[in-house]
Simulated scan of single mutants.
Amino acid sequence: MTGQQRIVVLGAGYAGLSAARRLARTSRDATITVVDSRTEFVERVRLHQQAAGQSIRRWELRELLERKGIEFVRAHVSDLDPAAKRVRLDGERSIAYDTLVYALGSAADRGVPGVAEYARSVATPGDVHALPAGPVVVVGAGSTGIELAAELAESQPDSHVTLLGAQEPGAWLSARAVAHIDASLTRLGVTIRSDAKVVEVLPAGVRLADDTVVPADTVVWTAGFTVPDLARRAGLDVDAHGRIRTDATLRSVSHPDIYAAGDAALVAGPGERPLRMACATALPTGGYVARAIVARARATEPEPLRFRYHLQCISLGRRDAVIQFLEADDTPAERVIRGRAGALVKEMIVRGAGMALGLR
């Protein structure tokens, strides 16, 4: 790069850290600043373990970043001014940038009545606290709901765990994977309701669309995620969910000095299907953004992002998991790894993601 380019990365999750670390290795003539409201990095893919009462490791962001020559600013981003190329922080502070990496991630969607008041979440580190013993209803039969229900049932066998979803757990996977998930949850004592649409969270349970009330001491909401409205408020081109629309190089289609990665980016994958919100998306898109920024600074047009998923991993407690192999278009293949072997593969993949961020 020529001159001191000011690169600001918003968010210190998988995507933000991946981008910042690669930029630090390859951008010798740039200053790199990462902004996040948290002081610690926690592996989001382990938050269901923490909710079940297990201890998970944390890393100090300042130490993690500054040893690589990256400035860390702990602050909440309150506003973005693309015309002035400034990020406004809480209080009167602001940071100027030449290039911005938008990697603010996602949080729990609390739009259903009662969720904000009465439900817990495992979407972000700030949401998670060890859940008390007693009847628990987990709403949402996606990956997060499945992992949490299994972890709770295994760690707290005296708690009655109910998993509610509109479809059977893992419905988007192969028949072999779905059968194993059902068998594992049943073995752990989880009650599965696959015809349940929750329309309201109550102080002591949930109300379904048919007006049935399912009682619980604790309700955990895993049915959907949302992204910050910062990009929308700043006038960037976003989709209906608030994700920044990007071109083939993950650059904002409306503001070319802004790149987006991870959950807050709308990225076209194989067959033009949007890439899903996942660690498996955040790490490679963060790394790609860094390569694209460096290429353009060197007056070279970057190759378009070429990306495909290979696996989807769902843990079922500490000694069981499903590893679903995927076709190029992200649909399930026939091959599945199950049981203890699956748990070992899942742990290896999670540890590998941490190593990519310098956590090991």
Score class of each variant (00 low, 15 high):
Pro157Leu: 12
Leu305Thr: 01
Ser194Trp: 03
Tyr102Asp: 01
Ala75Pro: 09
Arg176Thr: 15
Asp36His: 04
Ala280Arg: 11
Ala333His: 06
Thr249Gln: 11
Gln5Ala: 14
Ile181Met: 12
Asp247Gly: 15
Gly69Leu: 02
Val73Pro: 02
Val227Glu: 03
Glu334Val: 07
Glu301Arg: 06
Phe225Leu: 14
Gly242Trp: 04
Lys197Ile: 09
Ala52Tyr: 07
Ile244Ser: 10
Val34Ala: 15
Gly53Asn: 03
Arg273Gln: 07
Ala166Leu: 10
Asp239Ile: 12
Glu60Val: 10
Gln5Ile: 14
Asp257Gly: 12
Leu10Pro: 07
Arg291Trp: 02
Tyr309Arg: 05
Thr246Gly: 08
Arg340Trp: 06
Pro215Ala: 15
Leu236Arg: 04
Ala119Tyr: 01
Arg28Gly: 12
Val161Glu: 10
Lys68Ala: 06
Leu359His: 04
Ala175Trp: 11
His48Asp: 08
Ser121Glu: 03
Gly262Pro: 04
Ala268Lys: 15
Arg44Leu: 11
Arg243Gln: 14
Ala264Pro: 02
Trp221Ser: 02
Ala231Glu: 05
Gly114Ser: 12
Gly235Lys: 10
Tyr118Ser: 09
Phe307Asp: 03
Ser155Ile: 12
Gly170Ile: 13
Asp211Asn: 13
Thr31Pro: 07
Ala278Asp: 05
Gly145His: 05
Ser252Asp: 08
Arg193Cys: 05
Tyr118Leu: 07
Val219Ile: 04
Gly224Lys: 01
Arg340Gln: 09
Asp247Lys: 11
Ala353His: 15
Ala24Trp: 13
Leu344Met: 08
Leu230Tyr: 05
Gln324Glu: 04
Ala51Gln: 07
Glu151Leu: 07
Asp90Ala: 04
His48Tyr: 13
Phe72Trp: 10
Gly317Leu: 08
Phe41His: 09
Ala141His: 00
Arg25Asp: 11
Tyr102Leu: 14
Gly287Leu: 09
Arg338Thr: 14
Asp229Val: 00
Ala268Ser: 14
Ser121Lys: 00
Tyr14His: 15
Glu347Phe: 01
Leu326Ser: 09
Phe41Leu: 01
Glu303Asp: 08
Val322Arg: 02
Ala103Ile: 06
Ala234Gly: 03
Asp237Cys: 04
Ala328Arg: 11
Asp29Trp: 09
Arg86Cys: 05
Gly53Gln: 02
Val199His: 01
Gly262Lys: 03
Ala12Gly: 05
Val345Ala: 07
Arg207Trp: 13
Gly269His: 06
Ala179Thr: 14
Ala108Thr: 03
Leu311Ile: 09
Thr249Asn: 13
Val322Gly: 04
Pro284Arg: 13
Ile293Pro: 01
Asp211Trp: 08
Pro332Lys: 08
Arg193Lys: 03
Phe72Leu: 12
Ala343Trp: 00
Asp98Phe: 14
Gly11Ala: 11
